[in-house]
Amino acid sequence: MATVFRYTLRRFRGQILGWGIALALLAALIVGIYDSVADQQAQFEVLLESYPPELMAFFGADDVATSMFAPEGFVSAEFFSWMPIVIGIFAVLMGSGLLVGDEEKGTLDLILAHPLSRTLLFMGRLLAFVTATLGILFIVWLGFVVTMNWSTNMNIGWGRVCLPLLALLAELLLFGALALLLSMVLPSRRMAASVAGVVMVASFFITSLARIDERLETVAKLSPLNYYQSGEAIHGLNWQWVGGLLLVTMVFVLLAWWRFWRRDIRVGGEGGWRLPSFSRLRLRRGQSQRPPEPSLSARQRPSDRGEGGGKLRRRRQAVLLAV
């Protein structure tokens, strides 16, 4: 399993650094901006009060005038509130491709022919995914900690910045596990990533809209992002929510493992299924009318048989020439 873990993590290297550094820079930028915003708080408050309250509620900044200019409110609105669907893209893409990516490329066939149980491969890769997600969040955390050192107004403290990142981690693992499970059930990685992505974005909108429209509150209870604290976690992490999210993640992971353990490893699309489409139906009808194709290479067509193979024919030509 260690080999699988190391190898998978090495493949994640670029992703970890790319996402991590880009978002750490964004975090640094936000900390930097906060310094100037805090200096001109009065003007900004006037500006923000002119916005419709629904808009502010949508972005989770209801009592914006007071909270937004506190360091916690600022990083929450500017960074943490939308990070789940940003790093969520990483989680969904990596989760859906964790095993099926290699299966679709055809490389999984040979790997699984090695003395390595499917469970170990699954666990090794899953651990690498979790580690990669942690790695990205760690770099983001570093971005916060380093820039907060220089900042005059942003003084959350390195320990407390961890808390919203933990809340974020729980969401990312959940979406990653969902994508992984879907990739085991749906016919292609792309479809799994699309569906998981749609669930993620829908969850974001439902949770955001539910803040404005009370009728959505029941539906929003099913939305994973309903249990995401964003920057509020700085004041104290809701461990119940994090625990709940991790529990659901575990369920997804177990289902995905069970499915992976039982299913056929595909090569060349066998055993896959597709949503029926008109073009496919037409194609199928066309195929049944076509005569069966001889699947031998061109030089071995049955038509050659009457005269023997190429060698025979050449010899025959030689005989004829001799005549």
């Binding site: 493949r11 040979l110 022919a113 003395p115 090569v267």
Partner: peptide, 28 residues
């Protein structure tokens, strides 16, 4: 068992030696 798949695909970014060492590592 030694297995050669009909449609052999190996991680394209690995070097030949790296790929062979990886397969060997998977076999302990």
């Amino acid at each position: 068992t030694g297995y050669l798949p009909g449609e052999l695909q190996v991680d394209p970014n690995m070097m030949v030696e790296g790929a062979l060492r990886y397969f060997n590592a998977l076999r302990g």
